[in-house]
Simulated scan of single mutants.
Amino acid sequence: MRARVRSRCEENPNNIPQTPVPSLSRDAFDPRLRPLTVRVRVAASMLGIGRSKLYELIAAGEIETIKIGNATLIPVECLESLINSRRARIRQS
């Protein structure tokens, strides 16, 4: 007697893609840990500006980027520096 092989549809009758849920360590939720870098989309969101404006700031040399493979990363420290310098300009005027 041959064992019956189940098709993909029988295993997942609704044909819903099932993605594995990554396991996160407890360190991922530690509020004392923060990312050293973020991607462009996240950086723009953190600053409350659009990606185009962020790319303008990068082109002007106001924000540093780091390329790792295809990823463009922005040090969080540079974002904080930008905000602090802009706040200092406002206070001086």
Score class of each variant (00 low, 15 high):
R39N: 09
R39Y: 03
V40M: 09
V40F: 01
R41E: 12
R41Q: 14
R41K: 15
R41W: 00
R41S: 10
R41N: 09
V42P: 00
V42K: 13
V42D: 10
A43D: 02
A43N: 06
A43F: 04
A43W: 01
A44I: 02
A44Y: 02
A44Q: 05
S45R: 15
M46P: 01
M46D: 07
M46Y: 08
M46T: 06
L47N: 02
L47Y: 05
L47R: 04
L47Q: 05
L47E: 00
L47T: 01
L47D: 03
G48M: 12
G48H: 09
G48Q: 09
G48C: 10
G48L: 10
G48K: 11
I49H: 08
I49Y: 07
I49L: 08
G50I: 07
R51D: 09
R51P: 00
R51H: 04
R51A: 09
S52N: 11
S52W: 09
K53Q: 14
K53I: 04
K53P: 03
K53L: 14
L54N: 07
L54C: 10
L54P: 09
L54S: 11
L54H: 08
Y55S: 13
Y55T: 11
Y55R: 15
E56D: 15
E56C: 14
E56F: 12
E56H: 15
E56K: 15
L57K: 11
L57G: 03
I58A: 06
I58Y: 09
I58F: 12
A59L: 11
A59M: 10
A59N: 15
A59F: 08
A59D: 15
A60H: 11
A60I: 06
G61F: 07
E62K: 14
I63E: 01
I63N: 00
I63D: 00
I63M: 01
I63Y: 04
I63W: 03
E64D: 05
E64A: 05
E64S: 04
E64H: 03
E64Q: 11
E64C: 02
E64Y: 01
T65I: 12
T65A: 02
I66S: 06
I66Y: 06
I66N: 05
I68P: 01
G69E: 08
G69S: 09
N70T: 12
A71L: 13
A71V: 07
A71Q: 12
A71K: 12
A71Y: 09
T72I: 13
T72H: 06
T72V: 14
T72D: 02
T72N: 11
T72G: 04
L73S: 03
L73I: 07
L73T: 00
L73A: 06
I74Y: 04
I74N: 00
I74V: 14
I74A: 03
I74T: 03
I74D: 01
P75Y: 08
P75M: 05
P75V: 05
P75A: 07
V76G: 01
V76S: 02
V76C: 08
V76R: 01
E77C: 03
E77Q: 04
E77R: 10
E77W: 01
